[in-house]
Design a protein around this nucleic acid. Structure first.
Lengths: 265, 265
DNA sequence: TAGTGGTCTAGACCACTAT
DNA sequence: TAGTGGTCTAGACCACTAA
């Protein structure tokens, strides 16, 4: 069956043209190019878990047959997904669902780099895991209702043994049910990898606001610096498919021997 | 004349295929797809000033005829240039060379946003303009020799009347000959616009390293805060075509009512 | 109405990977 | 050798803009 709601194509001999198809007869009058509709369908399959992180998705020819469009149209849809880092193309092998269990993904969201030397993976020390009800401000940023259950995590990250990042995380309780300190302690690697594997929630985009602040007594002690030491403060909201917020993260970065790297273009 | 060094195409009836053409007979054995070669040629025309910022470039069909390739190949080349913000496509009108004289370009490189309200253009107050010889560190970042002539600029930027950014700039003297305090004072709008219009040097990419620091006496006074107030410190190196460094900028940002906005993907 | 970029198709061949 | 993504062509029609 054709999963596309009536796009103007007949026997396959007549080009469809760029006519943005309408959604059925008398339905929503949404117009969009065919490849965008294909892209949306592919995204749905990613979101639903039909194709899981790290897995191979069907080939372009197979998808073209399934959707009854040309390979070029499927290709353009996948091109955009690849540009958004949702999938990865590998010539000769196929197209794979992106995963946070890859070296290259690790440092795309960890922007703190050493001033000298090569980037290392930090050691994590979980300080706190607790189930709480969301404060108003947290609830608003996570698109929850104030008082909804959230999981609160506090951790210290050490680079080469030196405490460098102090982070607080708030996660929607409904999604991350059963996340305990033990599981966090056992887990090696980036937290987004755990979220993806254990909770089926893959972070795909984030928005950060960065400021400079002075260390309070608690942060100063944990980071091993004097009180009022200037720290970089980053507030991050992460989103999964459908622009759904799934994490609020507030980090204090010690930038004595590290810097936040950003490339503008 | 065919500006492409012998790509394997005959009478125009035989598809060229994806064979990366060699550069002439017995020349550099560099292989690259046709569209990448076209892209390089287009970039040359941008760099040389054949098409100036804001201007319309030739249409896809005209370029296809000029280079003796199909329109689809030209299209793919231009697609990449558009993705890199070197050109802007406008349906029905044509493809235009990007320019810093556009609203949308202003805030792509000015990442400091007000915590509340809409972004405003800052007022600039030039504090200092001087011709100097490049310190070793500056020379290294700008890919100059230590002692080479550089232009040093110091300025204060005010948002809604409040001093918020204190910046130092180092520019290669050879490129920005004749840049005076008067011209900087007279000029309204982003400095990159002036660089582009008056000096034919267009910034297209930048790399920033960000830290938190405490305000020294001088910065504190100019920004109207107490000494040791935490400030965000951003060191930026800007590049023009060919990854040539053309600016070193060091800014201190007061983040009491503003934040550095960054989107990760 | 003419010209531009935007979409879509169909078919060819290439480069790479695995069997 | 078969299958995958990558490149290239040729031609059609659509959406938008301006004269």
């Amino acid at each position: 069956m054709n999963p596309l709601p009536s796009h103007p194509q007949g026997d396959g001999n007549m080009p469809a043209g760029a006519s943005g198809s309408t959604a059925g007869a008398g339905n929503l009058p949404t117009f969009s190019p065919l490849y965008q509709q294909i892209k949306a369908l592919l995204t749905q399959s990613l979101q639903s878990g039909e194709w899981k992180p790290g897995e191979l998705i069907p080939s372009e020819v197979e998808l073209a047959a399934r959707f009854k469009v040309s390979q070029g149209t499927v290709r353009k849809a996948i091109d955009e997904l690849a540009a958004e880092n949702l999938v990865m193309r590998r010539q000769g092998k196929g197209t794979f669902v992106s995963t946070h269990h890859e070296e290259r993904a690790h440092f795309r969201f960890l922007r703190l780099m050493p001033d000298a030397g090569v980037p290392h993976h930090p050691d994590n020390r979980i300080l706190d895991v607790a189930r709480r009800s969301a404060p108003a401000e947290v609830a608003q940023l996570l698109d929850l209702k104030a008082g909804d259950a959230v999981i609160y995590i506090r951790r210290l990250m050490l680079f080469d043994g030196a405490p460098t990042i102090l982070e607080e995380l708030w996660l929607p309780g409904a999604i991350f049910k059963g996340l305990t300190a033990e599981r966090l302690d056992q887990y090696k690697g980036p937290m987004y990898g755990l979220f993806e594997s254990e909770f089926g929630t893959r972070m795909i985009r984030a928005s950060e606001k960065i400021r400079a602040v002075g260390a309070d007594a608690s942060a100063a002690e944990l980071l091993g610096v004097a009180a009022a030491t200037p720290l970089l403060f980053a507030e991050r909201v992460s989103f999964t498919y459908g622009d759904k917020a799934v994490e609020l993260r507030r980090g204090l970065y010690l930038t004595a021997h590290h810097h936040y790297q950003n490339d503008l273009s």
